[in-house]
């Protein structure tokens, strides 16, 4: 009796059609149906930010949206952000600065950081901290993440 709906969506630039149980949330769909395991499931109640993905150009919690709600929309995950190179500067800075340890928060953290950068966020440590305050990282203590984001924005500003 499971309610199922057909959806058409674009994920990381690829269009496809799927039949999904309506109760399945977006991140479970991306991970389990599409094999896009870069997005992680950390809390399933919208607090930790590990499942942060882009939907129609804006970051959302993948656990607070149903897959069926992505019908007709464009979804971009860490895999897509990597392939397009959009996250390249941040990824390089995160690597240089060791802005990750276990890496579980990293895809969601990068998505949030990228949104900050692309919306014209300033090279301002307090503002960066505020923006990523919805992404939990248990390992780093955040400083190195702030450093990396700051560095990317400052480098862009310098150009």
């Amino acid at each position: 009796m499971t309610a199922i709906e057909e959806i058409n969506l674009t994920v990381n630039g690829e269009r496809s059609t799927h039949r999904v149980p309506v109760r399945m949330n977006l991140v479970d769909f991306l991970r389990n149906e599409l094999g896009l395991t870069g997005s992680h499931v950390g809390c399933e109640h919208g607090v930790c930010g590990a499942c942060t993905v882009e939907v129609n150009g804006a970051c959302v919690r993948g656990c607070l949206m149903l897959a069926v709600q992505a019908d007709g929309l464009e979804v971009t995950t860490i895999e897509g952000l990597t392939a397009s190179g959009r996250a390249g500067a941040l990824q390089a800075a995160f690597h240089r600065r060791n802005s990750l340890q276990c890496g579980f928060c990293t895809p969601g953290m990068l998505a949030s950081a990228l949104e900050y950068c692309e919306r014209g966020g300033a090279a301002d440590r307090a503002a960066i901290r505020e923006h990523i305050a919805g992404n939990y990282c248990r390992c780093t203590g955040y400083q190195s993440i702030v450093d990396a984001i700051y560095e990317v924005i400052a480098a862009e500003e310098a150009q």
Binding site: G49, A58, V60, L64, S112, H131, A133, G134, N135
Partner: peptide, 12 residues
């Protein structure tokens, strides 16, 4: 608005 949760929540 800045006090209401976080950017990803406010987007939706």
């Amino acid at each position: 608005l800045p006090h209401i949760a976080h950017a990803a929540i406010r987007n939706r």
